[in-house]
């Protein structure tokens, strides 16, 4: 399941620029720039912690304050969660954008915004193909779930990386992240997707609980996977802070 959304999305893009070689060269150029300007691990950790808190608050606390919960009002809750976490993700990740000297912050946020509908379409497709019901009510739920999951997977990458398809390819098709930022992006996207996948397993059980319905348990899986990845990567940074900076120094030498 991992990276599926992105890949389906990529398919659309690859169709567009299949022939244009010049763009490819530009991409290669961007990639080189990526290697040059890497944000430090500490900043990535802070951004991730911020996003994690945003998602956490958005799914549990704010809806609870407004009298909603995911099980009884999944659509409303997902909407609140999305409304809260999406701006946080957009703004905080755009501080981490590559090539800040060329690319202004509004542009980074804008391309994140652009990527959202594409992500929603792709995620809805994958969700439906995996078995999400097709009736109108369910389609609304699928749409909201797709919005949340693409905000957690596609949007940060679009904000940070932009149109560098080779980086997208490296992150999602090959899973070979380079550096703490890419690791964070790759890990959280994969964890959210895999979490959603795992979350679907209890659905056929005959426990007749309302949380087994689409998309409640998948949402729990998505957010759970995302939060786990955030916690894990922050822990990893704080543990490896000294080591990684030494490593980078060595590379420079």
């Amino acid at each position: 399941m991992e990276g599926a959304k992105v890949e389906t999305r990529k398919r659309e893009f690859s169709g567009k620029d299949a022939g244009s070689v010049r763009k490819q060269i530009a991409d290669a150029h961007t990639q080189e720039m990526v290697h040059r300007s890497k944000p430090c691990a500490g900043k990535v950790g802070i951004v991730q912690a911020l996003c994690g808190t945003g998602v956490f608050l958005g799914l549990w606390f704010v809806p609870a304050m407004m009298g909603y919960n995911l099980i009884d009002q999944p659509v409303e809750t997902l909407r609140i969660c999305f409304a809260l976490s999406f701006p946080v993700l957009l703004i905080s990740y755009s501080t981490l954008r590559l090539q800040p000297e060329i690319c202004p912050m509004w542009w980074a946020a804008f391309r994140g915004l652009l990527s959202l509908p594409v992500g929603i379409v792709a995620a809805s497709f994958v969700g439906t193909v995996f078995g999400a019901p097709i009736s109108y009510e369910s389609a609304v739920k699928t749409f909201h779930w797709a919005a949340l999951i693409s905000a957690l997977t596609v949007v940060p990458v679009a904000v940070v990386v932009g149109g560098s398809w080779s980086t997208w390819h490296r992150l999602f098709a090959r899973t070979e992240p380079d550096g703490p930022l890419e690791l964070a992006l790759c890990l959280s996207a994969h964890c959210a997707a895999i979490g959603s996948w795992v979350g679907a397993w209890p659905m056929p059980l005959d426990w007749e609980r309302r949380w087994q319905e689409w998309p409640v348990c998948c949402t729990y899986g998505t957010v759970g996977g995302y939060l786990l990845s955030v916690i894990f990567s922050i822990a990893w940074y704080s543990a490896n802070r000294g080591a990684s900076s030494e490593g980078e120094k060595k590379k420079v030498n």
């Binding site: 890949e7 990529k10 690859s14 060269i25 991409d27 290669a28 080779s166 390819h169 098709a173 090959r174």
Partner: peptide
């Protein structure tokens, strides 16, 4: 998609 190659690769 893994087989997808870029000019630089």
């Amino acid at each position: 998609l893994q087989q997808f190659k870029f000019e630089s690769d």
